[in-house]
Every structure is written in C-alpha cells, then in structure tokens.
Amino acid sequence: MLYEKLARPVLFRIGRGDAEKAHHSTLTMLEHVSDNRIIRQSMIKANQVYAPVTVAGVKFPNPIGLAAGMDKNGVAIGAWPALGFGFAEVGTVTWHPQPGNPQPRLFRLPGSQALINRMGFNNDGAQALAARLAISPPVNCPIGVSIGKSKITPLEEATSDYLESMRVLYRFADYFAVNVSSPNTPGLRSLQGAEQMRELLGALRAESESLAAGRPERPIFVKIAPDLTEPAIAELLEVCQDTGVTGVIATNTTLGRDGVLQQEESIAAEPGGLSGAPLRSISRAVVEFVHRETDGKMPIIGSGGVMSPDHAQSLFDAGASLVQLYSGLVYSGPSLVRRSARRAKRARRHRRAQPRR
C-alpha cells in the first residue's frame, strides 16, 4: 500500500510521457543498493522469504523470480535478492551491443495494469555483461541469463549469434533462457518453427555439454510466445524434448490487445508486446497446456499477468515450478515479491499437511 500511495505516483510523475525514464531512475536506485554491501545484506535479512525449491538441479531460496527485461545489463544484480527475489533473470542480451528501437518505446496503461514495450533488445552486449558479472559481488540467489539474436545478424546466422553469447556467459549463468519470442526484433518469432528450433536448440545443447566439461550442464529454458496455437506449442515441446532442453518459460509478451480498457485503446494501438494483467489468463492457459502435454515432467517457469500473490499461485496450480514478475513489480511494488513467496510457502505446507489417499 505504501508503494502504491507514495512511491508509484512519484515514479509515474518522473516518467510522465516517458515511462522509460522512470525505469532508468528505478534501476539507478537499485544499482546503489547492489553496490552497498551493508544496505544489501540488511535488506536481504528483512525481505528474503525462505521457501526453498530445487528445479532442474538448481537450488532456489524461493520460487519467485525477476523476469528478463528489467535489468538487461545486470547493473543491479545484487539488489534483486535484497528485494526478496529467489532468482533473477538478466537480459535479454545479444552478442552485438545494440541501442534497440527508437524512443519512445515503453508505454503504461495504468487502468488496465499493463505495459507495452518495443524496446528491441537494447543492451550493452554479451561481452559487456560477462565483464560486469565477473566483478559483481556474490549474489544470494541463482542468476538466469536470457539470450537473443542481434538485430544485425541475419536469421540464417542466428544460431552462431546465440552460441557466441552462451560461450562468454556460461560460467556466470545458473541457467539460460533462449528468447525466440520477442515481437520486437524483426523475424525473431520465425525461429519458433520446428526446423529452426531443432537446429538452434541442438547446437546450444551440444555447446552446453562441451562447456560443462563433465560437470553438470546449465539448464536451458525456451521462452515461448503466448500467441502460438496449441498445435504449434506441442510441436515446439516435441523439439525441446528431442534435443534435451530443460524446460520452457511461459510466456513472453503478446501482440494481442484483449483485456485492455476502452479508454486506453489509443495507447494500446502502439506497436509492441503487451504485458501485465491482460496476459494473466493467456499465460495460465499456456502453462496448463505445457504441463498437461508433457505429463508434468518438463519444468515450467510461469510468467505473465502476475499482479497479486493469488495470481502467482494460480500459475503454480497450473503446473509452474517457478514464477516470474515484471509488470506486477511496476504496479504493485516490491512487497509483491515477499507476499507471493509467502503465499507459495503456505500453499506448499497445506499440500504437505493433506492426508494421502
């Protein structure tokens, strides 16, 4: 409530007409938290909810994580566990540094509790992220790295682009997210086709095995679009299983505009991916489908439309092993992290207390 009454109005005023400005202001504050060991440790003590879970061999302090896109360059890496997150995903990062799409490229729809972005993978590049992570202080939670295709790289050379990023970042990542579903890089979503995915994921798995050098490999998750049909998702899942990919992240932003309030339709007409509350039912349906299609054997990171602890729990109930936040953090503030982790912890205790039949 304090965030919604005090902090959010200030941030929204800072970014009036330019939501990206507020984003950078927030990230700068969190960078200071990340760099100050005393503040960081005191916040971890106050905010961290211990509800441990192991997914794909990785131990998470709790199952609530930060989605990719908030901290593309890993500048606030130490701040995320200080806010209570059980893991954080940095990126999406590309092999070549790139400025992204022209501004403005981030828009708020506060009545709909949604965001539209067409950022276009703006980032400093994989080598710069690796250099930053190499000197970052130890982080109290797993770090995922989301990798994508550089805009200047032709689609037919996409695989080598992803491989280069994986190579320089492998020792710093606890898992990799393969982003082939952003709507803001021309042609990127075409990589979700079965033939293209088989080539890309097969190459990444082979490279991961080589880089692991006999040690446990880094898990690989594929981030999928919410706009895919169920047959297309089923085909993609088959490729994931055939290539030995760990799991999926469901879902990325949507090109659809269902659920947007009528008075915000003019903003909704901006091109880009929609995230936030309108995505909730779609992401849950995709999580449920993936869980059913794989007989619950494939780990799923649920993402999309989590604006309350109950929304996070609904993704767990649908079959997600972990859940990520982004837009919910913008609208509900950092307390959403703690409250969602506590809700998940209570639900787990309740299930354990139920008599077995």
Rank of each mutant, 00 (worst) to 15 (best):
Y170K: 08
T246N: 02
R342V: 13
Q324I: 10
A51Q: 10
L336N: 05
S210H: 15
S150D: 00
G144A: 08
D161E: 11
A76P: 15
S181E: 10
Y170N: 06
I282F: 11
P355T: 00
G202E: 00
R343L: 07
F176I: 14
I116Y: 07
V55Q: 05
N73R: 12
Q263Y: 07
G259L: 03
D161W: 09
G296S: 05
N252Y: 09
L188D: 09
S112A: 06
V53K: 09
R13A: 00
G256P: 11
D71G: 07
V222A: 07
A19F: 01
L129D: 06
V323D: 04
N117G: 04
A51G: 12
L237F: 06
V245Q: 01
R356H: 06
A158R: 09
V286E: 07
P309Y: 08
Y326G: 08
N101C: 14
V290T: 01
A126S: 13
R171P: 08
L83I: 13
S160E: 15
N184L: 07
C240E: 00
L279Q: 11
L237W: 03
V290Q: 02
A177M: 02
A7P: 14
K45L: 13
T92M: 02
D242T: 09
L30A: 14
S208Q: 15
E89N: 13
R349V: 05
E156K: 13
P309K: 09
L315C: 08
R351V: 02
L30D: 05
P309V: 07
T92F: 06
E195L: 12
R132Q: 10
P97T: 09
R284D: 10
R351H: 10
A131E: 00
